[in-house]
Nucleic acid binder design. Structure first.
Length: 142
RNA sequence: CCAGGCGGCCGGAUGGCCGCGCGCGGGCAAUGGGGAAACCCGUCCGCGUGAGGAAAGUCCGGGCUCCACGGAAGUACGGUGCCGGUUAACGGCCGGCGGGGGAAACCCCAGGGAAAGUGCCACAGAAAGCAAACCGCCCGCCGUCCGCGGCAGGCAAGGGUGAAAGGGUGCGGUAAGAGCGCACCGCGUCUCCGGCAACGGCGACGGCACGGCAAACCCCACCGGGAGCAAGACCGAGUAGGGACGGCACAUGGCGCACUUCCGCGCCGCCGUCCGGGUGGGUCGCGCGAGGCGUCCGGCGACGGGCGUCCCAGAUGAAUGGCCAUCCAUCGGCGCGGUUUCGGCCGCGCCGGGGACAGAACCCGGCUUACAGGCCGCCUGGCGCC
RNA sequence: CGGGACGUAGCGCAGUCUGGUAGCGCAUCACACUGGGGGUGUGGGGGUCGCCGGUUCGAAUCCGGCCGUCCCGA
């Protein structure tokens, strides 16, 4: 499924990839959570909020933050969950997500053990359910 | 070969695709982007480098940083606790000593003081700490239904209670008994000897006087200022109810320096100038160190010293990864072969499972706890063979 | 990073300082009162005292080490 995006060269012209940066501040996490646009999949929870307009107008692409709480395990478990989510996000978000939003991905207990293709599917479905699919990529959804 | 004990070490490997942090070099992007500013930053390529033995728990000890701090004596509080050594230091470690366990190798022990004092020892038991006598034993006298009973004394062997009952075992001794006498053991005191010491040993004397609990209060000896990298420093915007400095005013009082005493010190009100708080703003602190490895010397050892060599993570919503393949170690099942002390063990093949505990956050020395599996060395005991 | 509290019956708590018997309320069970339910009364059952060691004759209690939960401060 990663191959489909690579092969669609003509589409890539109109649907170019957005650069992904991290969301580092607690205030941003709170703002995204307050928006209450969220979807819980078996492997992850996704929260979405429109990015506040930077008046200078320079878009920096989508911003993504990760959360792994103590509830899902010790430090090793949390690190592994966050790294898998990071890998999944890198594979999906730049092409499939609306570029004018901020995202927070929260790890769940199954994040570390869920089969990777299913984790990718979880993220796609969550984007769709949160109405955060990139318009031109909507038809590409499985 | 089997069983056991001790010490040390390792803790998956190789490859493919796609990525991350930091450092260095080069190209492109510049009149560049974000931001109030300090300050931070792109993209492409190459090279280097990137978690642990416990990085964990945060139980001790230090370095470092800031704060506090005048001195003396005593008190309080907390910790440690056989002796000697080691160390920057320790509650760690090493070597001894003593006690306990084990057939042995070896293992375990908060192991100072109970004749400084206070307290406790439930239940049971006559009696629980100071000597005493419930059943009992015995001489004498009296009575007698000849079983024994009473009185006056002597005794603590035996019984019984208990975790513990005023030394233990044996012989002698006696009316019965008793360290009453003797031997051995234990205990105490003293002399001498060995040892730096803890302690051990020989001997003499004592004739049992000294129950246990100090992880009960306590006594003795020694140690201890407080806080922690969110320490702290600088930069930026920028304020007063805070601070510093200068001037004026000023007490007899109040507060503070753990407590007390003595001496000592600081602060309090007004004006001016400068600084200054929060907002988890930014940068530094932030990796050459009680450092790693090798080797030689001293030491039983912990450890110390010399020489050579290496530079070895620095994130901050937090890099060190995601996915996959093969191999190896290994586990379960089946089959075949070998061996056996009939419990098993070893080798080969096939199928399936499948990587333990766990992630640096200022650094270091320990301790404690978790951990699939494996390797090496030494020691003790048993069996077999030569 | 620093500090503190708690863990005892199904639930909520005493007992721990000062060591020897684990107790109270609710719930639960049986019986009685009632035509039945509720309610009341009487009686009963139920606890590895978070786990592992140590001290002691004896540990829920004292000491040490682990585990878990919660709460403060910076």
């Amino acid at each position: 499924m990663a191959g489909t995006a690579v092969e669609t060269t003509p589409k890539a012209e109109q649907c170019d990839v957005s650069p992904v940066t991290r969301l580092p501040r607690r205030a941003d996490f709170l703002r995204v959570a307050a928006e209450r646009r969220r979807w819980a999949a078996p492997g992850l929870v996704l929260q979405v909020a429109p990015r506040p307009e930077p008046e200078s107008g320079a878009e920096t692409g989508v911003r993504v933050g990760f959360t792994a709480t103590k509830k899902i395990g010790n430090a090793v478990t949390r690190n592994r969950a966050r790294r898998r989510l990071r890998a999944a996000v890198r594979e999906i978000i730049p092409r499939a997500a609306r570029p004018d939003c901020d995202y927070v991905v929260i790890a769940r207990g199954a994040t570390g053990t869920r089969a990777y293709p299913k984790l990718l599917a979880d993220l796609r479905i969550a984007l769709e359910k949160c109405d955060a699919l990139r318009p031109c990529a909507a038809g590409e959804a499985p």
